[in-house]
Design a binder for these strands. Sequence first.
DNA 1: CTGAAAGCGCTTACAG
DNA 2: CTGAAAGCGCTTACAG
Lengths: 354, 354
Amino acid sequence: MEPPVSAAPPRITLKDLARELGVSTASVSNAFNRPDQLSPKLRERILSEAQRLGYSGPDAKARSLRTGRSRIIAVVLAETLTYSLNDAVASELLAGIAEVLDVHGHTLLLLSGRQHVSQAPGSANIADGFIVYGLMPSLKVLNDIPAQRPMVAVDFNIQSRPSVHVDNEPASYAVASHALTARPKRPGIINLRLTESPCNGRVTAEHTLLAAGQTITRSRLAGFHRALEGQGFDPATVPMWNIEENTFDVCAPVIGEILDLPDDERPDLLLCMSDRIALTVLTLAERRGLRIPEDLRLTGFDGIAEGQNRDPRLTTIRQDSHEKGRIAARMILGLAPREDCMLHTELILGDTCP
Amino acid sequence: MEPPVSAAPPRITLKDLARELGVSTASVSNAFNRPDQLSPKLRERILSEAQRLGYSGPDAKARSLRTGRSRIIAVVLAETLTYSLNDAVASELLAGIAEVLDVHGHTLLLLSGRQHVSQAPGSANIADGFIVYGLMPSLKVLNDIPAQRPMVAVDFNIQSRPSVHVDNEPASYAVASHALTARPKRPGIINLRLTESPCNGRVTAEHTLLAAGQTITRSRLAGFHRALEGQGFDPATVPMWNIEENTFDVCAPVIGEILDLPDDERPDLLLCMSDRIALTVLTLAERRGLRIPEDLRLTGFDGIAEGQNRDPRLTTIRQDSHEKGRIAARMILGLAPREDCMLHTELILGDTCP
DNA sequence: CTGAAAGCGCTTACAG
DNA sequence: CTGAAAGCGCTTACAG
C-alpha cells in the first residue's frame, strides 16, 4: 500500500508522542499537567521530545471534553459587539472581567444577544460560565445555555440568577438635586432607550415607557423625578427626549433639535442619562456658541474618562464599571458569593453644572 | 443498591435523550445539526422532548473534539486586555473582526500577550485560528499555537505568516508635509513606544530606537523625517519625545513637560503618532490658555471619533481599523487570500492644523 | 430515512 | 513513580 500523499503535515497527538518515547500516555499528560507525578528527568525528556516533534501540548478541545471544563467564560452583551466594544462603559466592564479571569487562568469569549441568527446553535455552550450584560432584546440566546452553568446578570435582572447593579435611583436623585439647586427655568431630561417601542426624539404622551425593573434607565428617571418633586417642580411638565443608541451619530439629530429650539423654549438644564449623551450636547452646544454653564447646564451619568479629561469637565455620576466587571467575574468563578450585589456611585462636580 | 443522592440535577446527554425516545443517537444529532437527514415529524418529536427534559442541544466541547473545529477565533493582543478594550483603535479592530466572525457563525476569544503567566498552558489552542495584533512583548505566547492553525498578524510581522498593515510611512509623510507648509519655527515629534528600553519623556542620543520593520511607529517616524527633509529641515535637530502607553494618564506628564517649556523653546508644531496623544496635548494646551493653531499646531494619527466629534477637530490621518479587522477575519476564515495586505489611509484636515 | 459502531484526543482513578 | 484502560459526549460514514 502506498503511503498517503498529504500536503498537511500529519498532526501529532499525545498518544503518538508516548509511543515515540516508549512511555505511557499518562506520563506524557502528567508531564504537561502534573509535574509532581513523574520524575523531573522523565518530564524533561518528554518536554524536549515534544518540542522536537512540534507537539505544542495537549489539545484543548479534548482536554475540555475530558475534564468537563474549558476555562472559558462567556460574556453575553445585549448590544452588538461593534457597539459594545466602542462604548466606554461596556469596555470598562469587559476590562474588569478580563482582569479577574486572566489572573485565574480563564479566557474571555465575546457573544452578543443581537447575534446573527443563522449560525449553528450552541457553539456558545462551550463556556464554563456566563456573564450577561444589559437588557437582552430576547432571552432566546440564554435558552441555549445549560441551566446548571453559573450565570450572572449585570445591569439587569434574570429570574433566579444573581445580579450586579449600581444604585441608579439614588445616584440620579443626587445629581439632579444638585443641578436643581441652581433654580433652572426650563429643566429637560434626555433618556436612553426608555420607551417600549423605538423613539429617537421627543417623548410624548403616546409613548409607553419600559416598566420599572426592566431597565436601569427607568430607575434613573425615577431618581430625576424624585429630585424634581423635592425642589417643587412638577415632573409631568418637564420635557423628555429619548435616545435609541448611545452613540454620537444617533444622539446628534435629537440634540440638534433640542438646541435649536427658540431661546425661551430651549432647556437651560439638561439631565442626561449618559456621559455620551452629555458630551454630544456639549459638542453641539459649543458649535452653536452657547455658553456652558451660563446658557445651559448639563449633567451626565457614568463618569467616563472622555468626560473628565477635557475642558469643561462634565458634572456627572461616576460608576465603577471596572469593579462591576471584577465582581461579576469573581461571582462566576465562585470566588465571591453568588448573590445580588449593588455598587455605590459618586457625584462628580465638574464645570458643566458647578 | 441505593440511587445516588445528588444535589445537582443529573445532566442529560444526547445519548440519554435517544434512549428516552427509543431512537438512535444519530437521529438526535441530526435533529439538531442536519434537519434534512430525518423526517420533520421525528425531528419535531426529538426537539420537543429535548425541551421537555431540559436538553439544550449537543455539548460544544464534545462536538468540537469530534469535528475538530470549535468555531472560535482567538485574537491575541500585544497589550493588556484592559488597555486594548479602552483603546479606540484596538476596539475598532475588534469590532471589525467580530462583525465578520458573527456573520459566519464564529465567536471571538480574547487573549493577551501580556497575560498572567501561571495559568495552565494551552487553553488558548481551542481556537480554530489566530489573529495577532501588535508587537508582542514576547513570541512565547505564539509557541503554544499548533503550527498548522491559520494565523494572521496585524500591524506587525510574524515570519512566514501573512500580515495586514496600513501605509504608515506615506501617511505620516503626507500629514507632516501638510503641517510643514505653514513653516513652523520649532517642530517637534511625539513618538509612541519607539525606544528599545522604556522611555517616557524626551528622547536623547542615549536611547536606541526599535529597528525598522519591528514596529509601525518606526515607519511613521520615517515618514515624518522624509517630510522634514523635503521641506528643508534637518531631522536630527527636531526634538523627539516618547510615550510608553497610549493613555491620557501616561501621556499627560510628558506633554505637560513639553508645554511648560519657555515660549522660545516650546514647539509650535507637534507631530503626534496617535490621536490619543494629540488629544491629550489639546486638553493640556487649552488648560494653559494656548491657542490652537495660532500658538501650537497639532497633528494626530488614527482618525478616532473622539478627535473628530469635537471642537477644534483634529488634523490627522484616518486609518480604517474596522476594515483592517474585517480583512484579518476574512483571511482567517479562508474567505480572503492569506497574503500580505496594505490598506490606504486618508489625510483629514481638521482645525488643529488647517 | 434509521441504527449500530468507531473514534476524535485527552485525563484520571487504579493497580502495580 | 509508571502503565493499561475506561470513558468524557458527541458526529459521521456505513450498512440496512
